[in-house]
Design a protein around this nucleic acid. Structure first.
Length: 865
RNA sequence: GGGGGCGUAGCUCAGUUGGCGAGAGCGUCCGGCUUACACCCGGAAGGUCGUCGGUUCGAUCCCGGCCGCCCCCACCA
């Protein structure tokens, strides 16, 4: 693509009689697509490319106002960079793999995935969609995945149409999905390379487990929720017979899993007990009493029971004190049916029989009864509320269950790596800057590596197999790795090299890894994915590392951080140069808008009601990184602005073209160009700092005074019957320059109105026109005095005030205006006196130097009547 | 407990190198069909810039202490 030249008006102009916003979206969306206005050319150098790592929206939900808000921010940057002459690489991805999609498919069709169900080639979804989960129809993994793909494809089309309506200048030929074959290939390749370099490893260890979804989850996906609970004081019996020990617990049902008691090493109450043992109530199991600094003397009785596993502190105690492992809760969150082997007495085994098969809540009730029956519950439970860890999408508290899982190192267990990743963060420019703290805060607070395997179905499979020994036990330490050329693989259906399908699951044969990779394990690769890593080297060289990652601030700890981790390992660079964090949308009560609160607004309705430019105006008024109130009032303001642009432009353009070779010669005209040059400079600086909101605000302020003052002042002269009249020629030349620049300043924000006006009198798309040039405008202005416009506006203002006070029409005649001011301002006024007389309908305008040289005064005398 | 953001007109917010009579829009009130726009135009009222100190000739702005609101992280027997 050739560098666009300086725009110049066409000779013939086509301006509608009654310009309107209605219908602009439909017309321009289509033309932009037909003309390839936003197409990435890819034929320039890296320095001339601006590449954007667009956040792939979750395809399984619906787009909400927050999407419109933040995607508009990015779009203003994209449009600005394009007008600065950059070849903008602006792809769109759809995040359609992972749990949200599974959940949506389950509910939408009333089905669940059961890998044991055979594939049904003639399957079609149930006609009557069940509403209750237990009534969902179990279907095979392959049928389930087919449904996932079907539904996401139609969801994505709806999203695309909405984003086009918003006016995102995305290159729609650059779409990717996170569950496509290409993405799976990239994701598996990246994982295998992590494995080969030792950055990925598997380990059997206690991990956080969601019993509803029956999958392990990662630290980054946790959230606290405050739940009711109760302290239960229960009696442990000292083995030496010297009495009982009281401990307080909120989870008495875990008593059967108790592997020890712990108190702080300095706790005087328990000094003699460390190293001795106690027996658990009800079950009579002997457990050691130990000391550990994490035990808090001021909590409960200062002595806690350690269970495998009640919470993450238990895991630490268990590991560091080298205690036994006594798990009883299964992956479904229920107590195992058979009594565990460490229960040896009849009483213990009988008691266990009463909690076997129950969930945590049911087991707790029974346990309290058992304790009470044995006189081992001291007093009544004391009700409290406390924070409990949940999977962010989960419905029940997490349990901790020992399972084999895959991890990618992220610095959680290595100070060196942690430091290296903090440093990578420092290589980024953060917008706004203070968001950097969230990143560093998170990285420095990590307490384990990144758990990437998930026990789910719809996702990128872990691309590995394991050899089975003679007893049919898998060898997890030496996985069978596919050749990169064979990716993507599904180890559940594909056979590893040197094996045959009938060896699957047989002793001496192999077994495929049943898990899929965490959705972030794939999302963390969006820069590699979008830029064609290992697939399109030319594109990759042209676009990576990318220029910008826009995203919401709440996923710094997940998406942003994990992307930095993967790029650090894969390319030894940060993934981008800049990251821009957008804020939340708050409803008018200052609460975060969300579906569960029922206060979401449907974006399509907003766009149709106010118009896309109006909604974009509201969005772009939100400062970077700042939470912003949902405000239809601002959309009305934006709509008014867009309409004003249409009308003012129509007026200016209809005055007729400036004669050949005309230039701004009048003092007032050149004065407005000086102010305009300042505006362009400021807007440019703001955009370069990613402060689109400031650029918009300054442009808007300028534009309204341009209309109210400059247009009014220049109107009469510009009408000039004789087009060769120098005053009229100067006015028209100035209006052309100013309007052209102003439209281009507005183009990133109001792409429809600005494009519409542009098409009336210019060739090509405004969105491919060059960004206005402050120096060129300054050159046109020459040595103009910026005070000219200011003084004229002051006088005009005084005249208006006088007319308003007298309650007469603005068209009323003014007998005389006398101005006292400084010499400099009077000189400025003198140069534009006729414009002021015309605009104010002033018969006589006089001026004289103010007596003290600084004060100014404007006296207005209205005609009688 | 650690980190971060924010308190300016009734509402939403600007205020960038400390000096303006502290601004805008919305809302309110008053006026006007003015040959671009009644989806409009003009005007007015309205603020001890959270609070108390400090630095300075001078503080909405810089420093410190409080008060209040919000977010993230940690703790979770």
């Amino acid at each position: 693509m050739t560098e666009p030249g300086t725009p110049s008006p066409r000779a013939e102009r086509t301006v509608p009689d009654k310009p309107a916003l209605e219908g602009l979206e439909a017309r321009w969306v289509e033309r932009w697509e037909t003309n390839g206005t936003y197409r990435f050319a890819g034929d320039r150098t890296r320095a001339e490319v601006y590449s954007i790592d667009t956040p792939p929206p979750t395809a399984s939900g619906s787009l909400h106002v927050g999407h419109i808000f933040s995607y508009t921010h990015t779009d203003t940057i994209a449009r600005y960079q394009r007008m600065r002459g950059k070849d903008v690489f602006y792809p769109m991805g759809w995040d359609d793999n992972g749990l949200p999609t599974e959940r949506r498919v389950e509910n939408y069709y009333g089905v669940t995935c059961d890998p044991t169900v055979p594939h049904d080639p003639d399957f079609s979804p149930p006609a009557d969609v069940a509403t209750k989960r237990q009534d969902f129809v179990p279907i095979s993994r392959r049928n389930f995945i087919d449904l996932c793909e079907e539904l996401t494809a139609s969801d994505e089309k709806v999203f695309e149409d909405l984003f086009r309506l918003v006016g995102l200048s995305v290159d729609w030929t650059l779409q990717y999905t996170t569950v496509s074959q290409r993405t799976q290939r990239t994701s598996q390749r990246a994982f295998l390379r992590n494995l080969a370099r030792g950055e990925a490893y598997s380990q059997e260890a206690p991990s956080l487990w969601d019993t509803t979804y029956q999958t392990a989850v990662a630290q980054a996906e946790l959230e606290d929720r405050v739940r009711p609970a109760a302290y239960h004081d229960i009696a442990f019996h000292r083995t030496d017979g010297a009495g009982d020990l009281t401990i307080s617990t909120t989870r008495p049902e875990l008593l059967v899993s108790c592997v020890g008691l712990v108190a702080h090493p300095d706790d005087e109450r328990y000094q003699g007990l460390f190293g001795t043992t106690a027996t658990t109530p009800v079950f009579g199991v002997e457990v050691p009493i130990r000391a550990h600094p994490l035990a808090q003397p001021d909590k409960g009785t200062g002595m806690a029971m350690i269970c495998t596993f009640g919470d993450t502190t238990d895991v630490i105690w268990w590991r560091e004190l080298d205690l036994d492992t006594r798990p009883v809760i299964g992956k479904d969150g229920r107590f195992a049916f058979d009594p565990p082997p460490w229960l040896t007495t009849d009483r213990a085994r009988h008691a266990y029989g009463r909690i076997a098969g129950k969930g945590a809540g049911g087991a707790q009730q029974v346990m309290v009864e058992l304790l009470r029956e044995g006189g081992e519950l001291l007093g009544e439970p004391e009700k409290i509320t406390h924070p409990v860890k949940f999977y962010e999408r989960g419905e029940k508290p997490l349990e901790i269950i020992t399972t084999r899982q895959w991890y990618i190192r992220n610095g959680g267990r290595s100070a060196d790596l942690r430091e290296a990743l903090v440093d990578r963060g420092r290589e980024l420019d953060w917008h706004p800057e203070f968001m950097r703290h969230r990143y560093e805060n998170w990285v420095e607070g990590l307490n384990g590596d990144w758990l990437v395997s998930r026990q789910r179905f719809f996702g990128v499979p872990v691309p590995l197999w394991y050899r089975l020994d003679a007893e049919g036990r898998p060898d997890h330490d030496d996985p069978i790795v596919p050749d990169e050329a064979d990716l993507p693989v599904d180890p559940q259906s594909h056979v590893p090299p040197d094996f045959t399908d009938d060896q699957r699951g047989q002793p001496g044969g192999f077994v495929g890894d049943p898990d899929v990779l965490d959705t972030w394990a794939t999302s963390s690769l969006t820069p590699l994915l979008a830029c064609g890593w290992e697939e399109d080297p030319d594109l990759f060289a042209l676009t990576y590392p990318m220029d910008l990652r826009p995203q919401a601030h709440d996923i710094i700890r997940t998406w942003l951080f994990s992307t930095v981790v993967r790029s650090h390992f894969e390319t030894s660079t940060p993934p981008w140069r800049n990251t821009a964090l957008s804020g939340w949308i708050l409803d008018p009560d200052r609460k975060k808008m969300s579906k569960s609160k029922g206060n979401v607004v449907v974006p399509t309705e907003l766009l149709h009601q106010h118009g896309s430019d109006a909604v974009r105006y509201w969005a772009a008024s939100g400062r970077p990184g700042t939470d912003t109130a949902f405000d239809p009032g601002q959309m009305k303001v934006g709509r008014r602005l867009a309409i004003k642009i249409l009308n003012a432009s129509r007026f200016a353009i209809n005055l007729g073209p400036a004669p050949e070779g005309a230039a701004p010669t009048e003092a007032l005209d050149r004065s407005v160009l000086v102010a305009l040059a300042d505006l362009v400079q400021e807007a440019t600086r703001a955009f370069d700092a990613y402060d689109y909101a400031r650029a918009l605000q300054r442009t808007e302020t300028f534009f309204w005074s341009f209309c109210d003052d400059y247009l009014e002042l220049v109107k009469t002269r510009a009408y000039g019957e004789d087009p060769d009249d120098t005053g009229a020629a100067s006015a028209r030349a100035t209006l052309e320059l100013a309007l052209s620049a102003l439209l281009r300043l507005f183009a990133p924000f109001l792409p429809y109105a600005s494009e519409e006006v542009w098409s009336w009198w210019q060739d090509g798309s405004i969105h491919r026109a060059p960004w206005p040039d402050a120096d060129a405008l300054r050159a046109e202005a020459g040595d103009a005095d910026p005070a000219v416009l200011a003084v004229c506006a002051d006088v005009l203002g005084a005249v208006r005030r006088a007319k308003s006070d007298a309650k007469v029409s603005m068209r009323a005649e003014v007998t005389s205006v006398a101005v006292d001011d400084t010499d400099r301002r009077l000189a400025a006024l003198a140069g534009a006196a006729q414009d002021v007389r015309d605009a104010g309908r002033i018969a006589e305008l006089t001026w004289s130097a103010s007596t003290n040289g600084t004060e100014n005064e404007i006296r207005v005398a209205l005609a009688d009547g």
